[in-house]
Amino acid sequence: MTWLNEKERRIAGFAAIAFGVVALLPLVDQGYYLSISVNIVMYVVLCTAWTLFSGPTHYISLATAAFFGIGTYTVALGIDTVPFPLLLVIAALASGLLACVVGIATLRLSGIYFVIFTLGLAELVRQVVTWLQTNFSSSLGLYVFTDFGEQHIYWMLLGLAAIVYITGWLINRSRLGFAMQIIGNDETVAKHVGIDTARAKVILFIISGAFIGIVGAILAPRFSYVQPPSAFNPMISFQVVIMALLGGTKRIWGPLLGVIPFTILFDQVTAYFPNHTSFVIGIAFMAIVYLLPQGVLGRLEDLVRLRKRFRMVSAEEGNNP
């Protein structure tokens, strides 16, 4: 078996060029466009990492804010003493560990337990962190002073995005990816062909959580002053669910289709109608359920299928006039 086939090589080449072009943005603009692009790339990584786990399992994870906050806190606590790259590793390990604990407690059971548990996870971690800070340290907030500018955060996020995409692609080719596909189809069959379903789910949840933790760590310098409520902002969890599902979770690039429009829309709404953000989130959820159950991706695939059928029909008609 060759490592990459013709089609895959073409996709890889195209993706590399696209990444290269996108990486040039800070040379053109350092203001608004860079700032919103940081948001977009951040959500691309978050949503793609979320989809690694929630796409095949259909488990709706609301743990994003908890992993993200742990990443941010790791940097805030260690920035003065530990080199930044090492902090990224620690952030990944810490959020991976939390994912492991949550996964072991809930993923043996049905999906509903998992949703409920993750729903309050960010709030739980926030309370514990606040309590630790008030009892064992002098102040509630932590300063994060670094030499990083917006463009450095942007490049780090882009690099991470590339790693997430490659990881996702490798998982899809692996036994683990195939196991997840079977679990997504029929968990009973999965067990009876020898898949340790709980273990597979926990492993994937750890990978997904670790990436989200790294995003939180990369974003920490942007906050400059880190406090529990800003680091563990539950809205991040909901926005990630919306954007990922809006795009579509059947393919690894699906979330991209949701992230770009929604981030821009949400940015505009926050700027001009700050009291209406709840409505946007609410309506987006409704739209996903009632209008786009397979996301934008699903609609696109329907269109492609229709066109194919149309071509086949017209080809047949051409043959038999």
Binding site: F238, S278, I281, G282, F285, M286
Partner: peptide, 16 residues
Amino acid sequence: VDSILATFGLLFILQG
């Protein structure tokens, strides 16, 4: 899954 997502929608609309 559907009811969770739909009631999330309801949650935010009522909150709004």
